[in-house]
Design a protein around this nucleic acid. Structure first.
Lengths: 342, 342
DNA sequence: GTGAAAGCGCTAACAA
DNA sequence: TTGTTAGCGCTTTCAC
């Protein structure tokens, strides 16, 4: 095979047009499978494009057609395990729509979020899927001012801008508190992250305290951590907490990874879980399947959230007269082996 | 504040120009911090842009300037834990360069990779960072034909197209075999993934067998799995393997997650690790920090790979006369607590 | 320090 | 079925 492109510049439609003896417009039609083109012409064009190694310029195409097949997905983190899952479901759901997700990561910083959003909006995507309901004023204004569909995901506790798909983290925390107190636990501790910007974790925490209050209880002790391997932190923090408050009979963790670390710690010490001490996390990570005892948790509906959000964007990008939707999913308690049965 | 954009169309430079009484050209200069603009004009423009809520159209900008600040990052998976780490390091490293990573996921499918690559190249990014050295002929042709910098990452065992940053997985496997045999293990089993397209896992496996051969050994037994939670699979497969071959004194896992599952299984059964049986994985996940025994592993240099790859792209996008580089990093054995000391 | 004209590579709309 | 024309919203270049 001869070197297809010896030029020092990228190939254009015009090159394919000249190589095939067909007008640029018809070449464009063939390459996009648009309109009626005779088979003979189609073959000629396809062959020319292939041997040249032509790759269309979507920038020019997008400018001319005012259409961009990109969907901006803005999430706080990729190391959380939660978001890769959401993302892969968005990706799967978008598969046959011609839309492509583009990911932006904010590291839980509102300023970074604003910046990433601005950057992404300037590419005029077909939709925006963004985690959470809390944004800077400027970010909120951008989202409100745009005509493209916006889906805020993960959380429904608050005011949405356009469409919303998520769960109530407040109620998730509340229900967990109810389950725990119903199981007879009374000395309850909490281990969470030192992340003021993780609003969903905060809401679960608040809902949890509210649930305890309903049962006439307050948190017996709490511990917060920042950074590091969540599993290792779970272990450490659990030790710290239990040293300080040996009478605890339950620990609620802000996520499954720290919870799993706590579970490992308790197991290693030969503590009787769930009789002596109960444990619960949050997210419903399938990672937990590998442990000898299954940590109690609550499914965050990550998969479903990604799928629904993608569907909304896809639907709206085909017909922009569709109304915005607010979808609240119901997280389900998975009692596992670390809450005692009543 | 009054509604900034009551039009049904996105704002253009012209709108800002009219609102501020400054020419489009000067508005453009202000918004890009280019050229000399008087302070008075700058203020006027900035104010107009802000109150209107103008978001520049990068599509038009890119077409006109022939410059796109995007870097395509093409990886097999996001649920692997390995790639999010690489990605976040790329992202960090690119932070101050004005370049933005755009992620494409291939699910270990060469066809999907080709498709994603084509899609991304059609946006004319400033660089491509792509996992692995194995690609379809068409993908390889696209990468060869393009003028933009290409960095193949993770693996150095093979022929690169342009720049390459990675480790030798073959030698990683080989060195692990040497360490294991040196520690006196003789009945060695292997647990891996059923993924023909995971070339790096395959190379480690081959290198491992080669290392055993040097010590006059062959694998005593092997087991391969597909799908599911790696931790749970590690547990199951270890059970299967040990049931079938109870005389094994070592198991090498194709990655840390399955290895950790195996470790949990052995601990639960009260087996004496590493005296009775030794275990090792691969990747150097910090997840392992939380376990009571630390799994032996080998650092895949994920962080460093991402950083170096990003540096190469950044450097080349500033000066395209820079030569391509091949960087081989050295994975370090982390013996942890699951290989017995000699 | 500022502005006017031309054009980036493609596609919409229309003409043949 | 195919071709022609006129932009899409910016930036480059050059003029003032």
């Amino acid at each position: 095979m001869s070197r297809p492109n010896d030029l020092r510049r990228p190939l254009t439609l015009r090159d394919v047009s000249e190589a095939s003896g067909v007008s640029e417009m018809t070449v464009s039609r063939v390459l996009r499978n648009r309109g009626d083109v005779s088979n003979a012409t189609r073959e000629k064009v396809l062959k020319a494009a292939k041997t040249l190694g032509y790759v269309p310029n979507k920038i020019a195409g997008a400018l001319a057609s005012q259409r961009v097949n990109l969907v901006a997905v803005i999430i706080p983190s990729l190391s959380n395990l939660v978001f890769p899952k959401v993302l892969s479901n968005i990706s799967d759901e978008l598969e046959d729509t011609g839309l492509q997700p583009v990911v932006g990561v904010t590291n839980y910083s509102p300023e970074k979020e604003e910046q990433v959003l601005y950057e992404m909006l300037s590419w005029r995507p077909s939709g925006v899927i963004i985690a959470g309901l809390e944004h800077t004023d400027a970010a909120r204004a951008m989202l409100q001012n745009t005509d493209i569909p916006v889906v805020e995901i993960m959380d429904v506790d608050g005011e949405g801008i356009d469409s919303v798909v998520g769960i109530s983290h407040r109620r998730a925390g509340l229900h967990m508190a109810e389950a725990i107190t119903a199981a007879g636990y009374r000395q309850i501790g909490f281990i969470g992250t030192k992340m003021p910007e993780d609003h969903r974790a905060r809401k679960r925490f608040e809902g949890f305290k509210e649930g305890l209050a309903k049962a006439g209880l307050t948190l017996a002790d709490t511990e917060f951590y920042a950074g590091g391997s969540a599993l290792a932190k779970g272990r450490e923090m659990t030790e710290t907490l239990l040293r300080r408050s040996p009478n605890l009979d339950f620990i609620y963790y802000s996520n499954d990874m720290v919870g799993a670390g706590g579970l490992l710690y308790c197991s290693d010490l030969g503590m009787d879980v769930p009789a002596q001490i109960g444990l619960a996390g949050f997210n419903g990570l399938d990672l937990l399947d590998g442990f000898s005892q299954r940590l109690a948790t609550m499914d965050a509906c990550r998969g479903e959230i990604g799928r629904k959000a993608a569907q909304i964007v896809a639907k709206r990008s085909q017909n922009d007269q569709v109304a915005s939707e607010v979808i609240e999913l119901e997280p389900v308690l998975q009692p596992g082996d670390t809450i005692r049965r009543i």
